[in-house]
């Protein structure tokens, strides 16, 4: 390494801190967690599976009995499975893994700035270190750098503390909900409270294209 490079390397180290970032605590913390996982007893999942199976059988029986009595069909809401029928299998599999109440809260846009080139879906837990943790949020991401825009549709499934935002305007969506708009030159967001007080947020990032607030509202109104 040349002297100039060494100086830059040293400056990075000075900036981040000369003390070692890796401590024994890192090792202990990791092995504690792995040991905890290995020691987990395995009878609980079996009991849960048996209970779920019993509930399903009972439910199916009750459903069958009711269908004999009540032949009037009520229109059903479109499920998230139907809404995302054209999405990649990987995304659909992740959605199918979610609890039913979380699935029921998911909404997706049908309008996009342009034909999306990529679809991804992520789930964030309240405590990412605990597999059994409650779900904090879900996010559909569309677009990709190659199309010059990115659209992030986030639903929070638990109460969150919002950062202070400075809305540029407030709009009323077609569903009657009040939504706030905020952002800057590179990204714009629209946010509103959905059913059960959960938040929905759409962020439109513009890498090369320029979008207006109207584009954002149009996307929000297309959510189903």
């Amino acid at each position: 390494m040349s002297n100039t490079n060494k100086n830059l390397n040293k400056a990075f180290n000075d900036y981040i801190g000369s003390a070692s970032l890796v401590t024994n605590e890192d090792r202990k913390r990791f092995f504690r967690r792995m040991n905890k996982n290995n020691k987990k007893s395995h009878w609980m999942p079996k009991v849960i599976t048996a209970l779920v199976a019993a509930l399903l059988i009972t439910g199916a029986y009750i459903g069958y009995q009711s269908s004999l009595v009540d032949i009037v069909e009520e229109p059903e809401d479109i499920t998230i499975e139907e809404k995302t029928a054209d999405y990649p299998e990987k995304v659909k599999a992740k959605i199918a893994d979610l609890p039913e109440d979380v699935q029921n809260r998911l909404i997706v846009p049908t309008e996009f700035p342009d034909e999306p080139k990529s679809f991804t879906f992520r789930v964030d837990l309240v405590d990412p270190m605990q597999e059994e943790s409650r779900i904090l949020s879900t996010e559909f991401a569309y677009g990709g750098a190659e199309v010059g825009w990115g659209l992030f549709v986030t639903t929070w499934h638990t109460e969150v503390i919002r950062d202070n935002v400075d809305p540029t305007e407030t709009v009323t969506l077609d569903n009657g909900k009040e939504a706030i708009i905020f952002g800057n030159d590179s990204s714009k967001s629209i946010e509103w409270k959905g059913e059960e007080g959960m938040y929905h947020n759409i962020m439109l990032m513009q890498l090369e294209s320029q979008f207006t607030v109207d584009d954002l509202v149009k996307i929000a109104n297309s959510m189903e």
């Binding site: 990412p128 996010e139 992030f152 503390i161 950062d163």
Partner: peptide
């Protein structure tokens, strides 16, 4: 960095 947690909590 892409996660909502990052965007929510400072």
């Amino acid at each position: 960095l892409r996660s909502p947690i990052h965007r929510l909590f400072k």
